[in-house]
Every structure is written in structure tokens, then in C-alpha cells.
Write a protein that binds this DNA or RNA. Structure first.
Lengths: 278, 278
DNA sequence: GTTCCGCATGAATCGATAG
DNA sequence: ACTATCGATTCATGCGGAA
């Protein structure tokens, strides 16, 4: 059966109500961060963020299968010299809503925004919060194991200090950094720290997160034919990756501009897939 | 003047009251994590953790200089399949107490303890929460600069060959000013992600952090002759590093065993320092 | 065809200036 | 006093043009 990619235009708070309950295997999304992207999303004030998000997370809880997982990519910004606390408040409120806060992965951004400030360094990481409905959920750990090829072994012998750090980021797109520990084995399990670069200047559009990010979580939490949902689709990275990986997906986007752009990209990609089968 | 290392035996909640207010430049500590290390510290239950810590953080707020910084190394453990929320609750409560939550650094542990669970990967990171009394605080960023990446290196190499000679002939015109800025800089500022290995050395303490961790923050937030405090001294890593870096320090430890061990180590080290001067 | 170099560009943050 | 906008700061990355 062909893979379905269902793209919908509208406010996810409303559109989500159209989806049946217990129908999604993985929700992977990166909502607009508080007080950012004002031009495109209207900007949610940090003080109002939790209040704004909770009705949406309630719908997400409804549509997620009991065995499914919700991965939320978010990072609080600095307000008045302090880190905002809305992400922590959101976690606490979502737990009251019925979510389990299972894990917090760290996305270590290799190329973060430059800048110099008197009392702060560059912010090089974001949160990837894992939420679940039940303690038992689907997780396919073997799918994200890091292969330890021969090249890694040979390169380890004569590594300069600079090469060491560079080498780490090349192994399996940033996973499995402790090379020397795992030399004896073929594959290693990753950790809860992901070391990836942002794809900053793509030709037509710049995605908020690199393809490797949704790809990793789709591998980890779904199998082929499963359903992936991104309620804040944006440039459609999650859905395109899902399609390429043989997963059905649903994407919701509030901006017509993004919606049409993703629609067009999907048509191109689906045509490619069709032709490759003929 | 000789560097003072003041080690005290007792419960820090009480001992801290002996210290004068506004007297400490940096507090760096790793308190017992909730419900962990039961054998050595009696284990604080996650539900009671905030309640237990707040009187201590109140004393810390009192003894810290207005220009000082408090760095708290902590990580919530997994309870019943979920991450505990006591760290987030602690941050929210400490802000009510008057602390500013300035930043959250990530310690990415290079070689974390191996292990495999059905629904979880190895935990390879810990939080380093930075709290301050004021928006203005002492920070010596140059002390922790790191070597630059490859791009800058290759660029520098090329600059020195093509543009350097031209620069010399036009001194004073301002033409080569940018170039000399680049030439002078072989180091870049770090980010808020620290990538350090854990030390697996056989210290008689269950959760020793590597020396590089306190060393980095002592460099960043203090100068020689400043005062560093670790209210949960443990094996005394913070104080030993401070001594080696020419900082005065105070350490408080509740266990006699640790207290005497650190006392002895300090005597040895101070004798070394004394003899090297003679 | 390779390799190399130049350049634009980011979920950023601060401080100053303006309404 | 309090919010909105703007310029300056700065580095890893990928692309396109050049050698």
C-alpha cells in the first residue's frame, strides 16, 4: 500500500480535532518558541506560552496511540538576563494533563549562532522532551545503533587532538562518541545526547532543525507503515523525512505560504517514488 | 599572602551560618542527588528534595557576594519510568527565594557508564545550573577560550600568505585592520555545552566529577585570591583544584571519613606548594 | 573532475535609541 | 518607566565560482 502524506492547512488546535483518537505512533514537532518568529506566527509571549500550548497538547494526547511517543523540540530564550521558565512550567502542567515525562534528550548544535556578550556564551543546545501516555511504549533501539566501521578503527590509531573532536561528529551523524570504548564491538547504542549541525543555508528554505533529527526519532519510535504527526509543520522536514523512510505522516501548518511550498515538494517527491517503482 | 583552604566538618545547613554574608565569589557544588547514594548520605526522597534544599540555598544566597555566582551540578534520576521533576521545581522555588536563573550549562559526559535498558539509553549529560544575585556579575570569559575550528585555521593560513604583506605596506590607512583582528585571534569563545570525560579514578567517593569541571568554572567566574565554596565537599575536588589555581576556598562535609581524607590530602599538597617556594 | 576559497546566513543576545 | 526596533557582535556550514 502506498505511503500517505496528509498535509492540512489551519491552526493545529482546531485541525487536530479532525483526527481520530489513538491513531498516531509518533508526534515529532518543534513549535514556535516564545516571543520568536513574530512575523510568521504572531509570537507567543513567554508568560502566555503554557496557557497557549496546553489545549494543543491535550489534543495530541488524544490522537496518540497508547504505545506512541511525543517528542517536543524546544528551548527557552533569555528574557531580561535570565532564562525563561516556561518550558519547565509546561512540563509540570503536561504531567498534570496525563503525560508521562519519560526522558530529556539534548540536541548539541555544532554550529550555533555566533555572538559575544559580557555575561553569556553562545547557546549551543536545545531540549528534546520525550513524553508518553504509558510506561510501556514502542522503542526500536537497534534501529539507531551506530555502526563501527573499519575506518573508525584505523583512524583512531593516529588521531591528532583536533582530529579527535572532528572525528566524533562524523560517527553516525554524531551518535556514539566514545569510539575507543566500543572498538571491540560492531555496533554501539547511542546516548541521550545528539550532536548535530543545523542546516543553515539551504537553497530555497531553511529548516529549523536538520533532517537527521526527525530521522533519528522516526527510526527509534516507529516502523514502516506507522503514522507520524507534526502539528507545526513549517517547512515540512518531518513529513518529507517520514515519506522517504516509508512512514505515513500528517502535517498541519497555519501559514498558506509554507503549506503550498510543502505540497509542491511532496508532489515532486511522490512522483519520484512512483517512477522508481515502475 | 598564602592561599587559605578552610575545611569544616558538619551539616552545611548549620555550618553555613558561621560564614559572613557577601563573602564568597563562587559556589560550585554537586549535592547528593535525590534518593541516590543512600549509603553515604542517607538519601533524600525526590518528593522532599526541594523542601530539604531551600534552607541551604537561602544560606548560600546570604554568603555569596553580589558579584558572585552559584553553579549547581545536578541531574534528576528516573523514578518509576519517568524523569523526576524536582530539579525544575527547585529552580522555580529558588527564583522565588531571590535567585536569578541566569543560564543552564550542559555537561556532556564523554564516557558515561555503559548500560542498556529496554526503553532508555545511557544518560550522558548533567545540568550545570548557573544562579546569580544580580544581573551584573563577574565573568572572565577570556580565561576559558578554546582553540578555533578548522575553518578559521585554514582562513588564517591563507590570509597570512596573501594579504599580510599588503597589510604591512598600508599600516595606518585602516585597510588591513580587519585582517589583523583575525590574525590576532587563534581562539574562540566556548559555548554553554561542556564536553568532558568523567574520571573513573578510584576516589573514595561515589560521585566525583572530573577536575576539569570545577576548574573551568573557577577560571570563568573567579580571579586569583578569590573565595570558592563547596558546601557538599565530598572528596574535595573543588577545593583541591581551587588551591592549585591560587584561589582561597571553603569546603563543608558531613561525613568524618571524607573530611579527614581531604584534610590529609590538603596537608600534602600545601607542603608541596610550600617547598616549591623555598 | 577535484580542491580550494569566498561569501551569505542562521530558533541569538545585548545595549542603545526611539516612541 | 516600559516596550519596540536596530546595529554590532561572531562562527560553523554549505554552496557556487575559480584555479
Amino acid at each position: 500500500m502506498a505511503i500517505q502524506t496528509d498535509i492540512r492547512l489551519g491552526d493545529c488546535k482546531e485541525v487536530l480535532k479532525e483526527l481520530p483518537e489513538n491513531s498516531v505512533d509518533l508526534i515529532f514537532t518543534s513549535p514556535p518558541y516564545a516571543d520568536q518568529r513574530k512575523k510568521t506566527y504572531g509570537g507567543i509571549h513567554p508568560d502566555k506560552y503554557v496557557e497557549w500550548f496546553l489545549p494543543i497538547s491535550a489534543e495530541l494526547l488524544r490522537v496518540l496511540k497508547p504505545s506512541g511517543t511525543f517528542v517536543l523540540n524546544i528551548k527557552e530564550k533569555v528574557v531580561n538576563g535570565e532564562r525563561s521558565t516556561y518550558v519547565m512550567e509546561l512540563i509540570l502542567e503536561m504531567r498534570k494533563q496525563g503525560w508521562l515525562w519519560t526522558e530529556e534528550f539534548i540536541w548539541h548544535k555544532k554550529n550555533c549562532y555566533p555572538g559575544k556578550w559580557p555575561n553569556r556564551f553562545r547557546d549551543a543546545w536545545e531540549r528534546l522532551l520525550q513524553f508518553n501516555k504509558n510506561k510501556k511504549f514502542n522503542m526500536y533501539q537497534e534501529a539507531v545503533m551506530v555502526p563501527m566501521g573499519d575506518w573508525a578503527k584505523s583512524r583512531l590509531k593516529n588521531l591528532s587532538e583536533t582530529d579527535k573532536s572532528r572525528d566524533e561528529s562524523k560517527v553516525g551523524s554524531g551518535f556514539g562518541k566514545n569510539i575507543s570504548n566500543w572498538l571491540a564491538r560492531d555496533k554501539a547504542y547511542p546516548t541521550n545526547v545528539l550532536h548535530l549541525a543545523t542546516e543553515c543555508s539551504n537553497k530555497n528554505h531553511s529548516a529549523a532543525f536538520p533532517e537527521a533529527l526527525p530521522k533519528w526519532f522516526i527510526k527509534l519510535f516507529t516502523r514502516e507503515g506507522d503514522v507520524v504527526l507534526d502539528p507545526f509543520m513549517g517547512s515540512g522536514t518531518t513529513n518529507l523525512v517520514a515519506l522517504n523512510m516509508g512512514r505515513n505522516s500528517i502535517g498541519i501548518e497555519i501559514l498558506e505560504e509554507h503549506y503550498h511550498m510543502v505540497k509542491q515538494q511532496l508532489n515532486t517527491r511522490q512522483l519520484q517514488l512512483f517512477e522508481s517503482k515502475v
